[in-house]
């Protein structure tokens, strides 16, 4: 309970946590929360580019769709992409990092050199190349993001595993005759969990940002998806007159990414085994 108390004292972490909870809530219940859920696909050309009002708090876009509804509906897509990308990156990166960190010699070297090669790939450029190759779609953007994000997990897990492998308690376990599987999964993985969780949390925000960038460049989501990045891209031609068109999806991205980052930083501070208490 010490952990909760400590967490509650960290204001920015609590704010981050609240934002993340709100975003998840909106993503899950979006279709029921949005005032005009049908605006995900339907257009109403009679009410184009209305400024914010009581009926349309965030205004309407060039096809007369309610921007508030589209921002709400976009949360699910953004969250789905980032969860899938980070989940897949962890699924690839964490086992490789454990294997490279625990083994010695050529296996470890081989994994880490391949990781270095992938780490050297610039994320956006790979995503653009893949989009060219496969045609612009959310899938190609996600593949590109996974291909460039897993090495971060490998590096972190590798470093942690190396450190823990040299620690006395792993030595003691080897002395007791514990199997490598037992040591790696029951001891090294839990002890390495905190940096992984922190990285994943920050990665969720980061992925939302990059996915939005790709949407903006026309390489991610395709119309008429209520994607935040795509909305900003489409709004460009109506600036500065229709300022609300770009502003509210942009704010949605800003707040969500900020929330994940604050939460990630807060988690980093409380992930300390010494906060574990028996009472």
């Amino acid at each position: 309970m010490l952990i909760l108390k400590k967490f509650a004292q960290d204001k920015s972490a609590v704010i981050g946590f609240a934002i993340v909870v709100a975003v998840v809530f909106i993503a899950v219940f979006g279709p029921w929360l949005a005032p005009y859920p049908q605006d995900a696909t339907m257009s109403h050309l009679t009410r184009r580019l209305r400024p914010p009002s009581w009926a349309f708090p965030f205004g309407t876009d060039n096809l007369g769709r309610d921007i508030l509804s589209r921002v709400i509906l976009g949360a699910r897509g953004a969250l789905k992409v980032s969860l899938l990308v980070v989940g897949a990156s962890m699924a690839i990166g964490v086992p490789l990092g454990l294997a490279a960190g625990y083994s010695r010699g050529w296996l470890s070297e081989a994994i880490m050199r391949v990781t270095d090669v992938f780490l050297a790939l610039p994320q956006l450029i790979l995503a653009l190349a893949l989009a060219q190759l496969m045609g612009p779609s959310l899938e190609s953007a996600m593949i590109a993001l996974v291909a460039t994000y897993w090495p971060f997990f490998t590096r972190i897990v590798y470093a942690e595993t190396r450190r823990l492998r040299a620690s006395l308690f792993v030595d003691a376990l080897e002395g007791l005759g514990a199997s490598p599987t037992r040591i790696v999964f029951l001891h090294i993985l839990p002890n390495a969990a905190s940096p992984i969780i922190v990285r994943a949390t920050i990665g969720l925000g980061f992925t939302i940002l990059v996915a939005a960038t790709l949407g903006f460049l026309g390489m991610g989501a395709t119309p008429p998806d209520p994607d935040w990045g795509l909305a900003i891209s489409q709004s460009r031609t109506f600036l500065p007159g229709a300022w609300w068109y770009a502003t509210f999806p942009g704010l949605a991205i800003l707040v969500t990414v900020l929330g994940f980052n604050l939460l990630g930083d807060g988690l980093r501070d409380i992930m300390d085994p010494r906060l574990r208490r028996s009472r």
Partner: peptide, 8 residues
């Protein structure tokens, strides 16, 4: 140090 800090 020979005990896993996460384990009771």
């Amino acid at each position: 140090a020979a005990l896993d800090p996460w384990w009771s």
